[in-house]
Design a binder for these strands. Sequence first.
DNA 1: TGAAATTTGTACGTATGTATA
DNA 2: ATATACATACGTACAAATTTC
Lengths: 149, 149
Amino acid sequence: MRLVCPYAARVEINRRSYVPLHIQLADILRRRIRAGDLAAGSTLPTEHQLATTYGISRDSVRKALAVLRSEGVVMTTRGEGTRVRAVPERRRIALGPGDEVVIRMPTPEERAEIGIDEGVPLAVISRPGEPDEIVPADEVKFTGGGAPQ
Amino acid sequence: MRLVCPYAARVEINRRSYVPLHIQLADILRRRIRAGDLAAGSTLPTEHQLATTYGISRDSVRKALAVLRSEGVVMTTRGEGTRVRAVPERRRIALGPGDEVVIRMPTPEERAEIGIDEGVPLAVISRPGEPDEIVPADEVKFTGGGAPQ
DNA sequence: TGAAATTTGTACGTATGTATA
DNA sequence: ATATACATACGTACAAATTTC
């Protein structure tokens, strides 16, 4: 059984701290997500609710959510809300001696084209004699021991 | 010899377009960087200069720069400016059969701790009998064919 | 089906703080 | 020490997508 932290919502923003408000809120929300208080797939409070709850501007709330999006922790849909991203199962990809994998961030165009969320890196897999394969890097893990070419 | 596009700076923002102003500016700057007009290591115009040059608010300029930072294309230092990131040489890492590599985005704390720029993914390398190794994913490329454990 | 309310996105503004040149 | 440049934090207004009624 998983215990839910009962004080999560009571964590306060400290305006005297040197830590920016949006970083403080991002930390609070990240902790709540990790603790299971905000489960994968669930919707976060609205930006307006977060602003009034924590006593900061909507601008600061949006910056906090942008931080979490860039980490791939949450995903926001216009008119709908912000949801906790369900981290996919990583399927194993075995690399042979001639194979090569390069990791980089996608451009917004690539994100739209491939249908990949913000904050998710890209894995470019090059195998000799085959066209490059591009996959979201959060869906895979790499090992050696693949068949040699 | 590399040709430099002489019209790069004349590309205009289209206010009638449905494409947001900050996305348009990010596209313009990305093109200028790729074309070599803004070379690696060079400093971009200041936020104020970009705002007046392209006739948009500093807010929109900052959003455009945030997009490019999240792609690992540029890097901003407070009081100093925004520079084109020099993409590092990728050193090759060979994976053995028991090794495992997972890619994810770092938290801001990890970024500060490891000294890694915004928009750079993290590679977590697990080898049997060794502690996990964490490296910026833009400094490496992976292949199979490593020594088995 | 359609209208209204909700919710996020864009775009602008101001003021002030902080790091760098 | 001053000026420059980026960062934070608040505000307003309206647009656009979704949900609700």
